[in-house]
Amino acid sequence: MTLHIDIPEETLGSILAKAFRNRSFLIGFAITVLVAAMAVISYVWTPYDVTKLVISDKNLAPSSAHWFGTDHFGRDILSMIMVGARNSIAVALVAVGIGMGIGVPLGAFAAARGGLFDEALMRLNDLVFAFPALLSAIMITAIFGPGAINAIIAIGIFNIPVFARVARAGALAIWPREFILAARAAGKSKTQITIEHVLPNIATMLLVQGTIQFALAILAEAGLSYVGLGAQPPMPSWGRMLFDAQTRMVVAPWMAIFPGMAIVVSVLGLNLLGDGIADILDPKSRRQR
């Protein structure tokens, strides 16, 4: 797939060259790959088995045997963080996928059609935005039962209007351009133009928004798991680990410190990656930095 960018002289090579000079992108990319790799490796190898409870090893402080210490069941925290990464990534990926998959077509279509459809969509957007996202996610998971799937749906729903809005705003800026006029003169339909010309031109914008939403979804999932509404034990999740840690802060502070750092580092990495991509692919945004 080739990426169509506003400026024709940008080649893949020049973009890569810019990427290598961009600090945000490099750090963000490295962290994101690291977190993803951690999740993948956890399928084949973890330092310890996270399903095995070793009560004699409970609440051990970080040491060379257990880098991040052990929890109240004697499970290795590092291993749990590795397995927990799967959960965070899966939930965020699907939730953002739902948001993009539904939101982008809606937004792009609204921009192409205008009129009543556009107005109705925007009002619907206002409606969703009027509900505090976290509270509503808690309500949804409480109603339909706690678990990773319902957490995905709850987070996904609130991603739809975000992408609809971004796609619509981006598409509206593309429609008055001359090359669209040319395409219309050539007899292409609005749907064709949207797919062939508008979407490729707002792809960067959507990608950047996607990384931001991914980071937010990880935070939201951690919050839901923390109040017991996300992934259920024995599946390790970062939010759940923090919940378990809360009452044991005095005896085992490492139970809280390391899972939290895993969240911070992942979110930081994604945000840096998003900033970096915006910098590299969108020259307009550089003016602000």
Partner: peptide, 22 residues
């Protein structure tokens, strides 16, 4: 600021409790 955006407030709360209360 970039770091601040990435910190979940409930984890930050736990760290504050550990530092200032415990």
């Amino acid at each position: 600021a970039q770091l601040g955006v990435a910190i979940p407030n409930f984890w930050f709360a736990l760290m504050l409790i550990y530092l200032f209360a415990v």
